[in-house]
């Protein structure tokens, strides 16, 4: 780690003030400390937001408000989440390890950086880490990389699980900052790399995530299907989050989000439109996959993600619709 100063904020306001003075926030630290040790991240000022509150989950008629500092473990253990938004609990529990989930926070996990091996290795070219240096992953070992939403500059995935479920659940990210509070639908929170992969999301400088809001539950069948090499404690090769409502044997409502498939948590309205009103069948799943993957492009070692996603989608829809 490069030398840095560490201050401790006692409120969102003091955290935002510190951020305005150039400080980066640290909460659980499970991703930031990891990257700082490798000098992938080299902040010179940190402000701890562990004691600013924002660690409650509250429910009202509009849905559920999850404070940014709620740990992943507490979120997944929350009775309301487990009862009404099980997709979120399942996705969180599919990620990392119990130790990490105890420490990682809701806000931090949304900002988790990619696991691309070239991003993590300062001897290698990476536009996300060092804009303009190039992308060594495109022609390198890219088994875990994205097949959708890629650019010349970057093919790295957002690696997490929690945000994938939140995307399927139409979550809204609440932020506060020098320009005041604002709400960002999660579908617009993560940014595709384009020609500037260094920014993973649309947060402005000095903006702090304060909470995530989940709209009222849909009552649909919620399935999180994570496909990975190990049975546990491994990042997804592909994951599918589904929230499906069946009425009289037909798909009445359907939300589908995909993790580790694109450069950002991926959702495609055309796929959902195709499915709604239809009777589930293997042929239907195949058509949905064709729409989802029509622009998918592999880079060699990750080509398999295209057929894998089609299969994972079929498995997920099969499970969610079988009643």
């Amino acid at each position: 780690m490069k030398a840095f100063t560490l201050d401790h904020a006692d409120s969102s306001a003091s955290a935002i003030t510190a951020m305005a003075a150039g400080a980066r926030t640290i909460a659980g630290g499970t991703n930031l400390v990891d990257l700082m040790k490798l000098q992938v991240e080299v902040p010179d000022k940190l402000v701890s937001i562990r004691s600013i509150g924002l660690n409650d989950i509250t429910q009202d008629d509009d849905g559920l408000l999850i404070g940014a500092l709620v740990s992943n473990a507490d979120c997944a253990a929350d009775t309301r989440v487990r009862q009404s938004w099980p997709l979120l609990a399942k996705a969180i529990l599919a990620g990392a390890s119990p130790q990490l989930r105890n420490r990682a926070t809701t806000g931090g996990n949304l900002c988790q950086r990619t696991r691309c091996g070239y991003f993590y290795d300062t001897t290698q070219a990476c536009n996300k880490r060092e804009p303009g240096r190039g992308c060594a992953a495109r022609e390198g070992f890219n088994r875990i990389h994205a097949v959708l939403g890629t650019s010349e500059a970057c093919i790295a995935t957002y690696p997490g699980d929690m945000a994938v479920a939140m995307l399927a659940l139409d979550a809204v990210v609440l932020v506060d900052g020098p320009g005041g509070a604002r709400e960002i639908p999660i579908a617009r929170f993560h940014r595709q790399p384009g020609d500037d992969p260094s920014r993973d999301n649309v947060l402005e400088d000095g903006e702090l995530i304060t909470a995530v809001r989940l709209p009222a539950p849909t009552g649909g069948v919620q399935v999180y299907r994570k496909v990975r090499d190990r049975a546990s404690y491994a990042f997804a090769l592909v994951s599918v989050a589904a929230d499906v409502t069946m009425v009289q044997g037909r798909i009445a409502r359907c939300a589908l989000a995909f993790g580790s498939l694109g450069t950002v948590p991926w959702r495609d309205a055309a796929v959902e439109d195709l499915l709604v009103g239809e009777t589930p069948s293997p042929a239907l799943y195949t058509r949905a996959a064709e729409v989802l993957l029509k622009d998918a492009r592999g880079f060699g070692a990750n080509d398999f993600k295209i057929p894998l996603t089609a299969r994972a989608l079929a498995a997920t829809l099969h499970e969610a619709t079988k009643g």
Binding site: R115, G117, Y118, D121, T123, Q124, G140, F141, I144, D229, R230, A231, S232, Y233, A234, F235
Partner: peptide
């Protein structure tokens, strides 16, 4: 010739669940 998966996150030794 560099080793891309040079850590225990990406070099997958079996875990309990395996």
């Amino acid at each position: 010739g560099h080793l891309v998966n040079h850590d225990l996150a990406e070099y997958h030794v079996p875990v309990h669940a395996d």
